[in-house]
Design a protein around this nucleic acid. Structure first.
Lengths: 221, 221
DNA sequence: CCCGTTCAGTGATATTGTCACCCAAGGGAA
DNA sequence: TTCCCTTGGGTGACAATATCACTGAACGGG
């Protein structure tokens, strides 16, 4: 069973009544998943709601043509609520979730989820708030893809992917998936960034040299 | 107060226990909105959950640059659940809902919504299912915008907008908003469609001449 | 060291978006 | 009616992205 204090690490859950917390802890199970595994997706429907204690999950969609785009990320302290809805609704869920790091998560089963929804106003608010955040994420993706310039978008991604340190180990293909574009496009824009002195590149690695310029570019939305 | 039977017109609500139905009816108010009005949006946050009895609401987003894209439509028998979440979460909600026809809706206030969520498993399922549908809608939009060809997308829109009859009264600009593209692009594609005999055009009006070809094009995703 | 795989570069071409205009159709006011 | 004035739509030139068809370089395992 393990940790009984994990609940308080979720913003919005700490105010749950003690009885509800106990119930939640009793019915949930802590699990570990290695990096690079699909935690859900077409053909791998979980029937648990996952709370991420540690690690990060990337949620992306694959189009019919085989190309991918990253929709959002679930970080530690967040919950992967969208799966819940699609799960309950038995909708064909075209997105998949992939662990980017080793992930520690608490799984609460469907029944417990429903009971919590019934019992606790705070839990309902937690869930709906989590939804709202995801949905605004999706709105942002739509806006970016429909109206954004790729150089601006790429600058933004580089900055957020390299939040710790100036190096990031990633390939042009992976960055193309981030933005839902083609590898060649990324290559060209990165070469442009390099010429302008914003970044340095080597195989599978990008180093940010001039964050300020990238920030300026990223904010010229 | 009016109709007490509206609940049964919502798939998923008809199985609600009688007591819950009564409560719902008692706390809700039927309202009418003329066509072309914004029912929610930045600066116009409702604190009701709306159930559409009649009419249609178009939900669209306006980018910083002023361009629009249609996200989805809420039809009679559906509920505009996404607003709820954003409403509860006090998230800045960048989308707006506009009535496309005269709309008759039932508004249930926030407090009643929350009580229903607590009281009824069926209601919870209704809400979460509605969410799931919207979210898959949004996923589809992202996929289309990121990877779809505009001629294909336009063919699809023409077909779905002209579901009753072969004429549709719309402008090139409106169609551009539908797909999140520019008016000139729509003009060119429509002229191409016209040359190929798929449609006929006059000012503010498009007539579908060859649905079969449009369907074929729309399905060559 | 060879070989297969992954990563990245590039030119040519197609598609889509942007800009700067144009003109025509319709509607209201005098 | 005539004059505007607004709205809808056409178009050419050009910019930004996407696609295709390659190329070779870098790395890893046998």
């Amino acid at each position: 069973m393990g940790n009984t204090a994990w609940i308080d690490r979720f913003q919005g859950l700490s105010t749950l009544p003690a009885a509800v917390k106990d119930q939640l802890v009793a019915e949930s199970a802590v699990m570990k998943v290695p990096a690079g595994k699909a935690v859900f997706g077409p053909g791998a429907v979980p029937d648990n709601l996952l709370f991420l204690l540690k690690g990060r999950v990337r949620v992306q969609q694959t189009s019919e043509s085989g190309r991918d785009i990253v929709l959002y990320r679930v970080e530690a302290g967040e919950s992967c609520v969208l799966t819940t809805a699609c799960l309950l609704a038995h909708e064909p869920y075209s997105a998949e979730g992939i662990t980017e790091t080793e992930v520690t998560a608490v799984a609460i089963p469907r029944g417990a989820f429903d009971r919590l929804m019934a019992a606790s106003k705070e839990f309902r608010e937690f869930v709906l708030t989590a939804y709202a955040r995801r949905i605004t994420d999706l709105f942002r993706v739509i806006d970016d893809v429909a109206f954004g310039r790729i150089d601006v978008r790429l600058a933004g991604r580089l900055l957020s992917l390299a939040s710790d340190g100036d190096d990031l180990a990633t390939t042009h293909s992976q960055l193309a998936t981030e933005l839902g574009t083609a590898r060649e496009v990324i290559s060209r824009v990165l070469n442009d960034f390099q010429k302008r002195g914003f970044v340095a590149q080597s195989r599978g690695k990008i180093t940010l040299l001039d964050r300020a310029s990238l920030v300026r570019l990223a904010e010229s939305a």
